[in-house]
Amino acid sequence: MSAISPPTQRVWWKQPLDRVEGMWIVIAFVWCLVMFFMMPYWHVFGKQNLANEAYRTTPEAFTAKTQAMVDKYTVRVETDQKIPVVRPPAGSDVYLIARLWAWWPMLELEEGKTYRLHLASLDYLHGFSLQPENINIQVHPNYDHVVTLTPTRAGTYGIVCNEYCGINHATMVSRLYVVKSK
């Protein structure tokens, strides 16, 4: 007689569909298909997709690559901790280390140019959160995640850690500079 009693019609699966339910199922299913196809569609026609490019790495190997970039392209240092600001050439591989509780080094990119940004952690999980652009990517230890990105607007951006990484998580913040190309 109700949902808390056994169905009164023993052969309940033969009861015909009501019009309200039938129509709603069709409408809802069509909407589900639209949502499904939006994802492959955006891979083909959209510009914001994560590539499937990632490599296994180690903290030592990733640090060595980052250090090589820093040695070659540092343009200045900032703050008391003398964090290098690196300006790598457009189109090149740029590296960003996440570790407890800092991002290293700082990057200075050119507007409208494309870079291959490598992200990896040296210890715990971290979260790469570029603000106010609001691009958010998980950063793992031992995985080198390659994100090809093109800054479209010059300015100073914040890189916040948005994966909880311990007591000083809330202090893990850095900058990314985007400058007009000459």
Binding site: W42, L50, G127, N134, I135, N136, E163
Partner: peptide, 11 residues
Amino acid sequence: TEQLNLIIHNT
């Protein structure tokens, strides 16, 4: 949604 997650993840 795969791509929309980029502007939401861990916020």
